[in-house]
Design a protein around this nucleic acid. Structure first.
Lengths: 142, 142
DNA sequence: CCTTGTAGCTCTAGTTACTAGAGGTTTTAA
DNA sequence: TTAAAACCTCTAGTAACTAGAGCTACAAGG
């Protein structure tokens, strides 16, 4: 089953221009072309693209993703010890980054919640969001 | 007390180039200049800059921040209800976005942790991250 | 078979929020 | 007084797309 770029786009929820962009920066392989010069895609391309999009949604940079992809493609028989270590390194680096993102987002969440509580609890017209944002001392956690 | 751009930078933890950038896009007012053409800042500038930086850390876009700043400057007698609703909207929009990001990252964290355990326990380098990231169904939580 | 509309093609330039560097001037401190 | 540090402007680069101009290909209806 061959997909056009439009079909690939629909199935991956990734815009057409973005797919072409990914090809341009070699994150996606160069697609084969039809006789009329139109790109042709297969299931493997869809998988890879879904992988990329899902990772992007989770906050990984394109460089992170390149790294993860290279990890998955790394030849197993070629220096297995090294490969294994490298795999661990990359994965734990990603894990650390993920955790610190979560932490930062959680303190952000707290603070936004705090702001909204202020808004809701006094029914005066003056919303305290702005005060809270202006004044760092008003927030808990840092 | 007059501050140089370097001092303002130190007190706000905002890079010098970024301060000038903010002036360029009119997020910060045009600073007065010394006889030798160097920028001069005051407490009010520091407050504003801290407000901006704090908001940025919380994930607000510069446009959101411009809006918040204009709300804080808006005359209170002129449709005050509208003012607070808009600020509240911005905050709750950010809160929602933040929560969904946290959720996604937490499921990724789990998967990465799982994979690391896996890598440690058997010495195959076959990594499940790729599968997990490629296949949305494999992840818990959504 | 032809036409028309949708989908595809390339290439350039714009977006956001900065950051870095080149090349020059001003201030400060020894 | 002189050298170093801090300042100045301006240009260009970064990530990760996005949009538009101007063109070609292809599928469906008459």
């Amino acid at each position: 089953m061959i997909l056009t770029i439009g079909q690939l786009s629909a199935k991956s929820s990734c815009k057409i221009t973005t797919i072409r962009y990914y090809e341009g920066i070699k994150l996606m392989p160069e697609a084969t072309r039809s006789s009329g010069n139109q790109r042709q895609y297969h299931q493997a391309d869809l998988n890879r693209l879904r992988f990329i999009r899902h990772s992007r949604e989770l906050g990984f940079s394109l460089d992170d993703i390149k790294e993860l992809l290279s990890l998955s493609n790394a030849p197993k028989n070629d220096a297995p010890e090294n490969n294994s270590h490298r795999a661990e390194d990359i994965a734990s680096k990603q894990l650390q980054a993920t955790r610190s993102r979560i932490q930062r987002l959680q303190s952000l969440e707290q603070e936004l919640q705090l702001m909204l509580n202020h808004c809701n609890h006094d029914s005066h017209q003056t919303c305290r969001v702005i005060e809270v944002l202006a004044n760092h001392q008003l927030c808990q956690g840092h």
